[in-house]
């Protein structure tokens, strides 16, 4: 498990997020997305707090948190590497790109490197189909980087 490098969303901050949506029950997914964005994962205490503030039964909060791909109940790395597995990328060799990245990082899909720098994820289409196969590091996209490109690109991230 990587060391915690950032503080979790404090409950105050979660309150502020919830207030932004007027504390409405229907904002559950939006609230969780905001917390996920700040913390990069959803901790149990965050989920409990959201459940009680929005007055949604805890199992329903968990159901939402485990249903959508954007959420993670485990701590993630500082940077997210997302390899697109959409159809266009698939027929242009995304499985091989994925293997390349996976070998370089030494982790499998959904896993985080030991130093906590990167988490490796797959996604079913980022809509960059014309450039496939594509991967994104956080919000920067890269079209079919070679093994050498990858080394150079990855070294730019702390």
């Amino acid at each position: 498990m990587p060391e915690a490098t950032e503080e979790l969303c404090s409950l105050d901050r979660i309150d502020r997020i919830i207030d932004r949506y007027g504390g409405q029950r229907s904002a559950l997914i939006q609230v969780l997305l905001d917390i996920q964005k700040e913390d990069k994962w959803l901790a149990e205490e965050s989920l409990r707090h959201v459940a009680s503030r929005l007055n949604v039964p805890l199992p329903q909060v968990y159901q939402v948190a485990t249903f959508y791909k954007a959420f993670s109940l485990a701590r993630r790395g500082r940077h997210l590497i997302t390899v697109c597995m959409g159809t266009a990328c698939h027929v242009r060799g995304s499985p091989r790109l994925f293997d390349r990245v996976s070998q370089k990082l030494g982790v499998g899909p959904g896993k985080t490197t030991h130093d906590g720098r990167f988490s490796l994820l797959t996604v079913n289409c980022m809509g960059c189909c014309a450039l496939g196969p594509v991967l994104a590091i956080d919000e920067d996209y890269h079209s079919n980087p070679s093994a050498a490109d990858l080394g150079r690109i990855l070294s730019q991230y702390e």
Binding site: M85, G86, T87, C125, C128
Partner: peptide, 12 residues
Amino acid sequence: DEGDPGAYMDRS
């Protein structure tokens, strides 16, 4: 919610 892989009309 353009979820079809290989499609990005709506995004554009």
